[in-house]
Structures are given as C-alpha cells and as structure tokens.
Design a protein around this nucleic acid. Sequence first.
DNA 1: ACAAAAGTGTTCCTCATACACCCATGT
DNA 2: ACATGGGTGTATGAGGAACACTTTTGT
Lengths: 233, 233
Amino acid sequence: MTVPPTAGLVPVTVDIVALTVLNGELNVLLVRRLLEPFAGDLALPGGFVLPNETLPAAALRELDEETGIVPPGHLEQLRTYGPLDRDPRGPILSVAHLLLAPADRIPQAGGDATEAGWHPVSTLGALAFDHATILNDAIERARNKIEYSPLAATMCPAEFTIAELRAVYEAVWGQNVDPRNFHRKITGTPGFVTSTGKRGGGGTGRPAELFRVADGISPHDAVLYPPLLRRSM
Amino acid sequence: MTVPPTAGLVPVTVDIVALTVLNGELNVLLVRRLLEPFAGDLALPGGFVLPNETLPAAALRELDEETGIVPPGHLEQLRTYGPLDRDPRGPILSVAHLLLAPADRIPQAGGDATEAGWHPVSTLGALAFDHATILNDAIERARNKIEYSPLAATMCPAEFTIAELRAVYEAVWGQNVDPRNFHRKITGTPGFVTSTGKRGGGGTGRPAELFRVADGISPHDAVLYPPLLRRSM
DNA sequence: ACAAAAGTGTTCCTCATACACCCATGT
DNA sequence: ACATGGGTGTATGAGGAACACTTTTGT
C-alpha cells in the first residue's frame, strides 16, 4: 500500500528562532529576504526541507546557509504552523525551531538572504509571513524553559560568571533578579554549574568565579527541582 | 514567485493522543488498523490532512471518523514527527495532537479502523509506526501541563467533586496526593473551580460538594500561580 | 454504632525574599 | 580612600507536607 492519492502533499519549510543575549538584551537572528514574497523584509531564517532530510538537519542547514551560524547551542522543535493563511504562495507548513545560542558568533548573510544579524526583540517592526507570531511563541517558550532547565547556560560562553548567567535570565524574563539570592540558588542547585577554579577579571570590582555547566549534564533534558520561578506579573 | 521545484512535497498526517481517566487509570484512545501498513495493529487515530484543511480541523475530523469521539475536551498540538524513518511507505510527516477529554463518551469504530476503544496506558503492547514514542511524549506533556494549568478539569465531567479531580491528578502523575491538602490547594486557587452549591451523593461517606471550572476561565491559557507541583521522583 | 469519605485546623519545615554586611579588585 | 561588583549571613514570611480532628452520610 502506498500513500493514497487523496493525501495532501504539502510543501514543508523550517524556520529558526535563534535567541541570544547581547548587551543585556534579548536578541533574535533575522535575515532580510532576497526573494518574493516579502522581498526586502526582515524574516526568520528558514527554507524548504529537502528530500531525505530530517527536520533538525534542515533547520541547521538553512541556518548555516543564510546566516553562517553553526551551533553549539540548544536546538529544539517549537511547533508547526499552517498550512492555511500564512503564505501568499498557498498552503505551506512551517515547522518552527528554537535555538538558544551564545552571542559570540558573527552572522554572515548568504543564500536567499541579503542581510543577517542580531536584532533586539524590543524594537522590532513587522516581520514577513507569520514570523512575529512564531517569535512570540518562541520567546514564551524560552521564558518558561529556563525556569526548570539549565538551558540559560547555553546562551553563555563555555565559561561564564554567575553575573553573566543572571544577565541571561534578566534579559529573557525582562525583569530584574536579586544578585545575592540568584547566586545562592544557582550554586546551590545540584547539577547546574560547577566551578572551574578560575576567575574572570576585566571589569571593576572583585573578580568573579568562572563556572561551566556541570559534568554529565545534557542541558537538553536535565531538570531543575525545585524550579527557578520568576515572579508572577 | 511560487514554491520552488526543489521544495520537498511531503505527505502530512495528523495523529491524536486522546487521554482520559477511567477507573482511576490513565487511558488512551486507540484504533485497530484496517489497512496496511501495520494492518491489525493498534495505533493512534489519525490520517492524512486534506487540501484546504487546518491541522486542528484534520485532527478533529479523523478523530470523529475513526472513533466517533467529538470533543468537548482540550485539543492542542503536541509536536511534529518525521519525515524520515517512521513510515514504511516513505517520508511522511505527522503532526501529533493531544486531546484531554472526559471519559463519558463511548468510542465507535469507523473509517479505516476496525476497533476503537480506551486502553490503560500501563498495559500496552507495541503500537504501529512510532506511536509509542508519540504516546510517551503526550503523557509527559500532560503530566507537566496539569501542574500549572487547570486542564485536569477537562478530563472530568462538567460537574465534578474535588475527589474526582484528584483522581485525575493521581492517574496522570501515577502518584498519590494527600486529599486534605489537595482540597485546600484547589479550592484556594483563584480561578480554578467554583462551587455549584449542589452535592454529589452516591458512594458511602459524606457527600462531596460539586464544582465546575470557574467562570470566564479558558482552560487553554489560564495559568495557576503558584503551580501545583508534583513531588520530585 | 461503625465505617468511610469530606472537609478544617494546626504544626512543622523548606525555601523565597529582602537586605545587612564583608571581600577583592580598579582607579 | 573610595567605588564597584562578588559573595555570605541571617531574619522574615509564604506556602507545602503531614496529620489530628470534626462533619456527614450509608449500612
């Protein structure tokens, strides 16, 4: 038996919401579209899934092609949008992905993109397609996710101070966190961070201890218990 | 501009994980497949998305066709599986959905299904395709979801006792919950349940007060704060 | 009278919050 | 010396866990 002829064959794309924290602000990776529809507009990087390609492979390929960004970082599926009323070309399904990445790589435009760069999410204009909706869902997911998983650390360099990690939480949540209590909570949560022994100088004030994510922890599925709840709003 | 010819056109299906609580146990709605592949095996209800159909519409249609179950209940998208290595017919994408429903409807097989019925999740054999994986993901989602949303109430009849609601939590979480503290927590959480004034007799012991979900609450997006955390395990 | 389930009161303890205070560095 | 950020100690309060106890029904 094969696929019945009544089955809808649907073009499938992947879109990637890559988030990072830059200058204390939550930023998203956007490209400027070269082609119609929405040529010249800002959009999430993404494109059509190729035959014999998995969804995460397509997401990573499109991200590399259009922005030059190659993880490390945490990639997970967000949700699927469509197929109706989201693309002027017709019914197209988009499987959106969320990537949490450190901010140390510089985007390089390529493929169907004329520009690629990080944009603060607080000052965005309109985006192509339904990408504004997808972005909002992605931010909401990220806000929830860092409460009960160590994923915030994937938006920091390999070695980071507690203050850098706190800046991630503050940027993602959009609210301030008490530095003293945050420090205790993070260092007191087993399986989150371990000290490297080193200290990071640089700024004024006492140099902070450098940490990395705890050994054997896959930020993908580790769980913080009790979670690090943000204040209700 | 149209969809480029290189774009992979992929057959897209929806699968539905319908969960309910029956006899104090978490149950899933399964059908026995009439057609190949996996003819004669148990599977999640589902099927191909039709042209000009949204994903939730396809999910509800397939559910009705194969099992006769028509919500009410809470339907949400779970995640998308595929397109590789999950269907012997070739690359097929499946958008899985989660339905939390009360147990008061009797499934009626139809369409491509020869049987339709509720099955306790604790005593399942193999399922067709990757449906065992999808089911596990759905249960995990349900377990998390009822912690911070009033969705457990959608698995109860329109009017229910606190004990019935507690049975839902115990079945989904697979752990006992203290009846006294649970009662206080539920009735003390604003925007969860409101009393109907009525009392439900029936069993032995003092008759329990009947509740319904609070007015103006859409269980879809209401949030419980603080959440009702299950014990860590 | 007794069993059984509903519902309330109370105690204990964990943990979040708030903030005083000390530490280590740059200027 | 002083400013600045890192890090520790500690008091207070909210809420979860545990459980004694009362209430209201069926048998």
